[in-house]
């Protein structure tokens, strides 16, 4: 299997926004246009992370997903605000291929099983935000603002036991810092679970992405800011991966 490069777009009220830790948000562009551009550049998947606060914004998000599914023909994952199995159904029916579930899974782990039973494990992504504490990693929820007592490695195992088909693993310590992925965390989770692990949080260069795969044993890598800011490109990251003999899908 080829190693995937996944591009994440933070979506708020129908626009892609960018900001460090949700502060000082600025407009980056139209989600569908950006997703289509990243597909053309060779991105292997797109993630829309809904960071809207209001319920009305949900309708806007589903409309965005619908438009994206008509214009973008690579897998689309939607995360943020998915709380019930009906939410999962809504997002999938709008045209998403997978949903990522974070806070709601911690609150009620059965949601993962319900989603997997009805729609299949392949469309249930367990999103885990982890923060280092001494020799271990703790799970945080609510966009990284609420600490739990749950051990991240144990939680990853439980998510898979309950039906998650992939783990989207974000290091809160590294998120936005551009100092490289938390390789020890990535490796620990990747070794603990028998499903694909997507490394997220900390990409500052193409070399960091390579390290997440080679040293972190990630099956896929998620990047956002460094692409939106023009620090690097999908093409440059893939070239670096090819150079490190990581098999990737060629960019046309």
């Amino acid at each position: 299997m080829l190693t995937r490069l996944i591009v994440c777009l933070d979506v708020r009220e129908g626009r892609v926004v960018k900001g460090v830790r949700f502060e000082g948000l600025r407009d980056v562009g139209d989600p569908v246009e950006l997703a289509a551009r990243y597909e053309a550049e060779g991105a292997d998947e797109i993630v829309f992370l809904d960071i809207s606060a209001s319920a009305e914004a949900r309708t806007t998000l589903l409309e965005t997903v619908r438009r994206a599914a008509e214009a973008v023909f690579i897998p689309l994952t939607v995360g943020g605000g998915v709380r019930t199995v009906d939410d999962i159904a809504c997002v999938l029916r709008s045209g998403a291929d997978k949903v990522s579930i974070n806070t709601a899974a911690v609150a009620r782990p059965e949601l993962l099983s319900e989603g997997a039973e009805r729609f299949g494990s392949q469309c249930v992504v367990a999103s885990i935000d982890a923060k280092r504490e001494q020799a271990a990693w703790r799970v945080w929820t609510h966009g990284g603002s609420v600490r739990t007592e749950i051990d991240a490695i144990e939680w990853a195992r439980e998510c898979v036991a309950r039906g998650a088909g992939e783990i989207l693993l974000t290091s809160i310590d590294r998120d936005g810092a551009r100092s490289g992925f938390d390789l020890a965390l990535t490796r620990a989770v990747s070794d603990a679970v028998p499903v694909p692990v997507i490394a997220s949080g900390g990409a500052g260069s193409a070399a960091h992405v390579r390290d997440a795969v080679v040293d972190g044993r990630a099956d896929a890598v998620l990047v956002a800011g460094i692409l939106h800011d023009g620090v690097t490109t999908v093409r440059a990251i893939k070239a670096e991966m090819v150079h490190a003999r990581i098999p990737v899908r060629a960019v046309a």
């Binding site: 299997m1 080829l2 995937r4 099956d219």
Partner: peptide
């Protein structure tokens, strides 16, 4: 296979 589902791009 050890790792399932098989999710991703394959030749």
């Amino acid at each position: 296979a050890n790792r399932l589902p098989h999710i991703g791009w394959t030749t």
